[in-house]
Simulated scan of single mutants.
Amino acid sequence: MGFPAFSVMTATGKRALPTPDIIDQVMWRGIHERLFLYESEAKEFILNNQNNSYDIIFMDAYDGADIFPHSLWDSNSLFMKALSERLHHEHGTLVVNLHSDADISDLDRSIEGVTTGKYVRKVGKAYKKGLMENERNGLVFSCEVPWLCNVSLVVSRGMSSDGRHRDQIKTSLMKTSLEVDKILRLPFSFLDYLKTGLAII
């Protein structure tokens, strides 16, 4: 995942860089000053910060061997329980970076136009169970990032499908993404991600 360098925080809670570089200023246009990114081993960070609540957590959890440890998506694990407690209960959102596993023989043909494979759906269902089981509202979906062969898996509390059809949910997400683009003045649009492939899990 790519984030502005200026937003990275040290273990002591201070900025890793004293001033933003020109790239952050041009690409992120002020967003880098409102982000506080803590780079840490996932289990250690979640288990050691039990007094904090987070609006959004980005997880890029592949190890040096390019393996996503099962302990980080086991719905019954201590980590998942702690993650559920740390994620804001009304609107907390988890974004997980996964490798795409879509294959022509492994497509989710129950949802037209979506190329999410079995592994991504399995991980999504595990997070849904671990983070949403006792929540009234919530939505789990994935977006393809084809030029990187990755998938962004999103677990969002506060969003709900409310029995709506996939097209209605997609329209709602697109509308919201335009609002986010406008408010944050992002240098890229979320719409491109939604258009390439969306799977409701």
Score class of each variant (00 low, 15 high):
Leu47His: 10
Ser189Pro: 00
Ile22Phe: 09
Ile31Ser: 09
Ser71Leu: 08
Asn51Leu: 11
Arg29Tyr: 03
Glu144Phe: 01
Asn48Cys: 09
Arg166Trp: 05
Ala102Val: 00
Val154Trp: 00
Asn48Gly: 10
Ala126Cys: 09
Gly2Tyr: 09
Leu131Phe: 05
Cys143Ala: 12
Gly197Met: 06
Arg185Thr: 10
Arg15Val: 04
Ile56Tyr: 09
Asn48Gln: 15
Ser177Gly: 07
Ile200Asp: 08
Ile22His: 09
Gln25Val: 11
Arg15Tyr: 01
Lys81Gly: 08
Arg166Asp: 13
Glu44Lys: 14
Asn137Ser: 13
Ile56Val: 15
Asp103Val: 04
Val114Asp: 12
Ser142Gly: 13
Arg166Leu: 05
Val154Asp: 00
Val140Thr: 07
Ser156His: 05
Ser110His: 13
Phe58Ser: 03
Glu90His: 11
Lys14Asn: 13
Lys182Pro: 05
Gly92Val: 04
Asp167Arg: 13
Lys195Asn: 15
Asn51Ser: 13
Arg157Thr: 07
Gly138Asn: 00
Phe79His: 03
Asp21Gly: 12
Pro69Cys: 06
Asp21His: 10
Lys118Val: 10
Ser177Leu: 07
Leu198Gln: 03
Lys175Arg: 14
Ala61Glu: 02
Arg164Met: 13
Ser75Phe: 10
Arg15Leu: 04
Ser100Ala: 13
Met59Leu: 15
Met27Gln: 10
Asp192Arg: 15
Leu98Ser: 05
Asn97Pro: 06
Asn52Lys: 15
Ala42Trp: 01
Val145Tyr: 08
Val180Trp: 07
Ser152Val: 03
Ala16Asp: 03
Met9Leu: 09
Ser100Ile: 06
Ser172Asp: 14
Val123Thr: 02
Arg34Gln: 15
Gly130Glu: 01
Thr93Asp: 00
Leu98Trp: 06
Leu148Tyr: 12
Gly64Leu: 07
Ser152Pro: 02
His89Arg: 11
Val151Ala: 05
Ser172Leu: 15
Gly30Met: 02
Phe6Ala: 06
Tyr193Thr: 05
Ile67Leu: 11
Glu144Tyr: 02
Met9Ile: 04
Met159Ile: 05
Ser172Trp: 13
Ile31Ala: 13
Ser40Phe: 10
Leu98Val: 09
Thr196Met: 14
Met1Lys: 12
Thr171Asp: 14
Ile57Gly: 03
Pro20Gln: 02
Val140Lys: 01
Ile22Gly: 04
Lys170Trp: 11
His89Val: 07
Tyr62Lys: 07
Phe68Thr: 02
Tyr119Thr: 14
Gln168His: 11
Phe6Ser: 02
Ile200Ser: 06
Lys125Ser: 11
Asp24Asn: 12
Lys122Cys: 06
Lys14Asp: 12
Phe68Asp: 00
Ala65Asn: 14
Pro18Val: 00
Phe190Lys: 05
Ala199Trp: 06
Lys175His: 10
